[in-house]
């Protein structure tokens, strides 16, 4: 009789019944595991772990109660996924490990699977359907957690790239009216834009007369890079300052001549120090050693 009654119930109802009879054990197991994972690293307090465990069980029951079958588009399903997204975000912000978090989700799934094993009233078909249901729900959750993790990583990488962009082209006022701009790495369109914006603003702010652009750290030059350099030099000129290009290594010089790039209108010097001497000469500044000054 019991078997017949159970066979008429939907998979969702069967799972709810199972959970209800052993809710205390399930909740206790999840909390215990949560404490061993998140409590040791001080990622979550005991209260937070308990709250998260209870909230998860509540949302899961709500999802199962929403219909005979789990609907991925239902608000209950979205709420459960949102819960895990927020949970994983919090763990990440506090320096937690994604792998451990995924293991925790697997453990939650295992708790339900263990319950199935102990329930002898379920037939093969019912057990199979519950297994499929659990796999589907928990796979979605794990995928969401991965999406959140990747999005967070992406944001971090972008922030680091922005920071690198600023620190890799430090504009320094090396003398009154003389700015130096060492360029390291490659000069693509987006970097050129950012460097040009910063440089032109500095020319105006520092009332610079000369800008020494040093390309010693530029590994390779192609027509696009040289085009960007020429644009930068023209922009400096439009602001009323003089640009000096320094640090053109032999390979770069060879590449420039092979590409038929005309740099005749650009003042070039072999090294940064030569460029600085040229800048001082333009400003009629003479730098003498201290002993020469005494004589």
């Amino acid at each position: 009789m019991v078997r017949n009654a159970k066979s008429k119930k939907s998979t969702n109802q069967l799972l709810i019944e199972q959970m209800m009879t052993k809710v205390a054990t399930i909740s206790q197991d999840i909390e215990k595991r949560g404490q061993s994972i998140f409590g040791q690293g001080n990622l979550l307090t005991l209260d937070e772990i308990n709250d998260y465990s209870l909230e998860f069980l509540e949302l899961f029951v709500l999802l199962l109660q929403a219909g005979e079958k789990v609907d991925r588009r239902s608000s209950e399903h979205k709420a459960l996924r949102q819960f895990f997204s927020n949970f994983s975000q919090q763990i990440q912000i506090r320096g937690g490990n994604l792998e451990e978090f995924v293991r925790f989700i697997h453990f939650m799934q295992d708790v339900f699977l263990n319950n199935l094993e102990t329930d002898s009233t379920l037939d093969f078909q019912q057990t199979r359907e519950i297994l499929l249901l659990l796999a589907s729900v928990f796979n979605d959750i794990i995928l969401d957690v991965f999406h959140v993790y990747l999005a967070e990583k992406e944001r971090t990488i972008q922030a680091q790239q922005e920071e690198l962009k600023h620190t890799s082209t430090p504009i320094t006022e090396i003398w009154d009216g003389v700015l130096t701009l060492p360029i390291i790495g490659t000069l693509d369109s987006s970097r050129t834009m950012s460097v040009m914006e910063n440089m032109l603003a500095r020319i105006e702010k520092d009332r610079a007369k000369v800008v020494v652009i040093d390309v010693t750290g530029v590994q390779a030059i192609d027509s696009q890079v040289s085009h960007h350099l020429i644009q930068m030099i023209r922009a400096v000129g439009l602001m009323g300052a003089k640009a000096i290009l320094t640090g053109i290594r032999p390979e770069i010089a060879r590449a420039i001549t092979s590409l038929n790039i005309d740099l005749s209108m650009v003042s070039t010097r072999a090294t940064l120090s030569e460029g600085l001497k040229e800048a001082f000469a333009l400003l009629s500044i003479t730098v003498l050693a201290a002993d020469v000054q005494h004589h």
Partner: peptide, 17 residues
């Protein structure tokens, strides 16, 4: 010349002014 103006002009110029 404002920095933003110089910037925009430098991107469109084909020769020296």
């Amino acid at each position: 010349m404002r920095p933003a103006t110089a910037y925009a002009l430098a991107l469109t110029m084909e020769d020296n002014p």
